[in-house]
Design a protein around this nucleic acid. Structure first.
Lengths: 135, 135
DNA sequence: GCTTGACTTAGAGTTAACTGTAAGTCGTAC
DNA sequence: GTACGACTTACAGTTAACTCTAAGTCAAGC
């Protein structure tokens, strides 16, 4: 049993709007989308699987142009398997870097939250507010 | 001993360019920057401390307009301490959500890397390439 | 006193990633 | 057979966050 989706259904499944899907199609991010006789796009499970990778790459900060390189390689066939593998490996490094940066920023945020916690208590008690630079 | 920085020095310290610092100033993200007689901006340690918070918020996805709200509150004085505290608390939730999303995307990426690892081996050995949707 | 370099402003231009509009086509329900 | 809703395209508009240009000011060194 082959399940197929209209652009509206595919967009709903991917938490996108149809404008965005058409934009991705125009930019070449969705290679093999077939059409009905009337010209309407038909999304298969395989298309949605590919789309989930596209969304994963996009949500982790890869620019559209690079994602297009990936789908271009996918279209070119098996001799680009290594290139695609390398691209994902490099991107994983990038994502791990993002995790580290996020953790670092979380530390600073926690530090500032600590300061505000104390400052709010002091304020409520009518005591002098600590200076932020001493903390 | 009070250390002061020119806009170029401040930019270097913060890994930004001067254009960006002037843009932030124009948008009201850097409240109390004083000036020399000639009108040049002077950044103190306290200014850089505030700037590091601005950068932290920006790097964790807070839009400029919201950051401006934060610095506006800072300018208004101690009666906004709770508002600022609440804003940072809410933003921390946001950052934790980002961490979760990043982890989720990393899982999908690892899954795909696994597929490509196997697919590349099969390709190199002249064996049939597994289909991506079966994995 | 003139050049040089670092700064200033106002405002225009750029980029990425959408987001929306207008005009038109197609297939089904009445 | 026509109205409706879901789709199509081409293309224009939007948004956020810069990024740059042009014209000008100022202080220090020769």
């Amino acid at each position: 049993m082959i399940v197929e989706y209209s652009i509206t259904q595919a967009a709903k499944k991917m938490q996108l709007i149809t404008y965005t899907l058409r934009y991705y199609d125009r930019e070449g991010l969705l290679p093999s989308i077939s059409r009905t006789k009337a010209g309407n796009r038909v999304f298969t499970e395989a298309d949605l699987d590919m789309l989930s990778v596209v969304c994963c790459l996009k949500n982790t900060g890869m620019p559209i142009k690079e994602i297009k390189q990936f789908t271009d390689w996918q279209n070119e066939g098996d001799h680009t398997l290594h290139a695609r593998h390398n691209m994902l490996l490099k991107h994983k490094e990038d994502v791990l870097k993002q995790m580290e940066d996020l953790k670092e920023n979380l530390r600073l945020l926690d530090h500032k939250l600590d300061y505000y916690h104390n400052a709010c208590h002091a304020y409520d008690a009518g005591l002098p507010i600590p200076s932020c630079c001493e903390t």
